[in-house]
Design a protein around this nucleic acid. Structure first.
Lengths: 217, 217
DNA sequence: AGTTTGGTCGGGCAAATTTCCCGACCTGCA
DNA sequence: TGCAGGTCGGGAAATTTGCCCGACCAAACT
């Protein structure tokens, strides 16, 4: 019976809020071609659950402690480049949407959307398409009108400069000395920058900076 | 030739061994167009001394604790891209020579060389040329005969793989999981790799990996 | 004027990581 | 047969991170 039978869509639900998971599990299972095969309440469990269940679609809330939602997306995509991940978020800031897609998400739906939108989006990403709810599309469209060169737009003057020097290879102490700041402040910026850009590793940060032309190789 | 020799060549001497500094200061000051304007016994002091004295040439031993010699070179070159730094080392391994030039050194002389070689090298780098002692040249020439693609040659199989994944943005935990190692071992490798390549910062490591084609951006 | 907003700057502190050193186990090679 | 070197991880002190907080200041509102 384990053969490719019912042509259904297997789903992994990731959200740190049990009640929310329950609610949406109910909604999703109302569709008779949907099967919620697993749930997870954090990034690590999401990764594990993905490995053991290999669902067709991962529906994931990324606003979990530690910006770990983005991390989870990257982890999963690193393991399986074909993984379909649909982000299901409370917010729809352009930066977060971009970060999600940048991390490898296939879709982005806000929690304010109609269930029908979520369901349609799941079917879309299951087919390998990209999907996003109307409000997200509107925000992104608006964003694309204003001059935006990258995910670094969300960073302030100081943050950019610190990222630049950091990516260039400078130590935090050196940066602090160059900018006449305390090492602590530079550390705080470093943390802030990672949080804002959704990068989890220093290496990712450097790559981002290089990609955005902030640092020349 | 209308050379600028009115002021002679000002020199900053960097070595963690006071006796060695004293000895070479004496040798160098025997040349009446040489002026040793400052000394330093570690990387941090070298950087400070360079900033306050802006010498024509920095003569530096790079075998100081923490591989900080290379760091000092990078720091100084970051501050002043025209800085002339002559490395004066005990060893002449190809890897170290390459690391030094890679960091921005203009010359490399071993401590086993004749004083005349050091003096000639100082004049060379002061003129903006590159210089190295005969033994160093021989080692490098030999190295250039065998297929060598980069500073990564000194790394073993495992180290390369770990560096690759690290530069790709993976967490140490992920790398450990991927390679079936303990996190501790990956941390140790990470440390080892930085030590071997002379990179002080994760960012520098990433740049190195990208430059060497280990990681595609 | 008064207030909200947002960038800049740093303290605090538990938890995690780095740094460096060490021993053990293989394998190849002299 | 011995030893050099790559691989793997423990240990422990020092440092850094992650996350939270308050303070200052300037610009943009109301």
């Amino acid at each position: 019976m384990t053969t490719v039978t019912t042509r259904g869509i297997s789903i992994l639900l990731v959200d740190d809020h049990p009640v929310v998971r329950q609610g949406y599990r109910r909604v999703l299972e109302h569709q008779d071609d949907f099967r919620v095969v697993a749930e997870a309440d954090n990034a690590a469990n999401a990764y594990r659950a993905f490995k053991s269940h290999e669902p067709d679609v991962v529906v994931m809330d990324i606003s979990m402690p530690g910006a770990s939602g983005l991390e989870a997306i990257r982890n999963i995509r690193a393991r399986d480049a074909d993984a379909r991940i649909l982000v299901f978020s409370m917010h729809s800031e352009a930066a977060q949407v971009k970060a999600a897609f940048g991390a490898g998400a296939s879709g982005f739906v806000t929690k304010g959307s109609e269930p029908a939108e979520l369901i349609a989006a799941i079917r879309s990403v299951a087919r390998g398409e990209h999907a996003m709810s109307d409000d997200v599309a509107r925000v992104l469209a608006l964003e694309s009108l204003v001059p935006t060169r990258s995910a670094l737009d969300q960073l302030g003057e100081r943050e950019i400069e610190i990222l630049r020097q950091f990516a260039a290879g400078s130590t935090k102490e050196q940066i602090a000395a160059n900018l006449n700041l305390s090492t602590k402040t530079v550390q705080n910026y470093h943390y802030l920058i990672k949080a804002k850009t959704g990068m989890r590793t220093d290496a990712q940060l450097v790559r981002l900076a290089v990609e955005c032309g902030l640092a020349n190789l």
